[in-house]
Design a binder for these strands. Structure first.
Lengths: 192, 192
DNA sequence: GTCTATAAATGGATAGAC
DNA sequence: GTCTATCCATTTATAGAC
């Protein structure tokens, strides 16, 4: 039975995570402290330990939440019937997702927090994202592991450049459709 | 006149930079302190201020040094006569450069150190890298700004994936030639 | 040029009262 | 469940002696 106590606990946990995300967006993924998070939610630092066992545990929950958000966003997407159109849409969705929240992107896809390694449970969510991507690519006729790797390099590269070199513009996001065409022309030209 | 004093000063400066790089490689780009750098070179932390005005100044010198290394490496490269072979070689060189030193890659190409912005002088070196790349691409018949942007997305994407997801393997570096072929097939097919 | 001393703050984390 | 108090370490940086 999920009683009020448990629900309240969960709500506070979420408040803490939200505060951590907010600070990460303001000052960088690694630019915040437990003290600041606590202040943000109207607590003192030690109280956070009733909800998370360590700062790493907060990063881990953020990692899981970010992966879940990507999964949810992909699921909620309008899905064109044509597999190639779908692939194009998935690429746009992914890059937009990254650009919308740079620290989230850094946490999920760059290894940038010293010492942080996602827990198996959190990593499983990231694996699930990749699994679905494999399905979408396969539907469009792209099945080789090398092609999947090339795809991830391509879309993360567009996201990286956009976030790092033109955070407020669209210089690289504007290239997504063109990049997908390039990719498909190459990968579908030489099946087998 | 460059006397002994000035040369000695420069040598110590370099020792400090080397120590900072070493620590960055061991514990992550942001995972080291001035105290540790000082210990590494046999000093106490305050003495570093005779060589660098702040920790940011050390990051800035590292940024400049990293850019200079990439420039030097590109210059020292064997240069195939065929422009397309040259482009292929440049791509391999770039990805190898990134993979050889992940923190250096993160410092130069990802905005990952909270608050750090390279000085104009250091950034000019990074611009010079891009300028030379433009020349190499132009020689191969790739001139549009969009194509240059797509190129940087492609090679940084390969580097990002290699460094973040297979740091000790060659899963993405093995794709460099294939990626260049894909890029050229697309960009040279539709000139003008 | 390097040191000690110290500022002034901040870090993550724990013990134990309420 | 949240607090105060505190640990113990560490942070970047400056002042001033040697």
């Amino acid at each position: 039975m999920t009683d009020r106590r448990a629900r309240r606990h969960e709500a506070t946990r979420q408040e803490i995570l939200d505060a951590a995300w907010r600070l990460a967006r303001e000052r960088g993924l690694t630019g915040w402290s437990l003290r600041e998070v606590a202040t943000e939610v109207g607590m003192r630092a030690p109280s956070l330990y009733g909800y998370f066992g360590s700062k790493e545990a907060i990063y881990d929950a953020m990692f899981a939440e970010g992966s879940a958000q990507l999964l949810a966003r992909t699921d909620a997407m309008p899905r064109p019937a044509d597999p190639v159109d779908l692939l194009r849409a998935v690429a746009r969705e992914f890059v937009d997702f990254c650009v919308a929240d740079p620290p989230r992107y850094q946490l999920l896809f760059l290894r940038v927090v010293p010492g942080f390694v996602p827990s198996p449970a959190s990593y499983a969510l990231a694996e699930e994202v990749l699994e679905r991507l494999r399905g979408v690519l396969a539907a469009a006729g792209v099945t080789s592991e090398r092609a999947v790797d090339l795809w991830t390099a391509l879309v993360t590269g567009l996201a990286t450049q956009q976030v790092s070199n033109d955070p407020d513009g669209t210089r690289w996001t504007d290239l997504v459709d063109h990049a997908v065409d390039m990719f498909l022309a190459s990968e579908l030209a030489t099946p087998r």
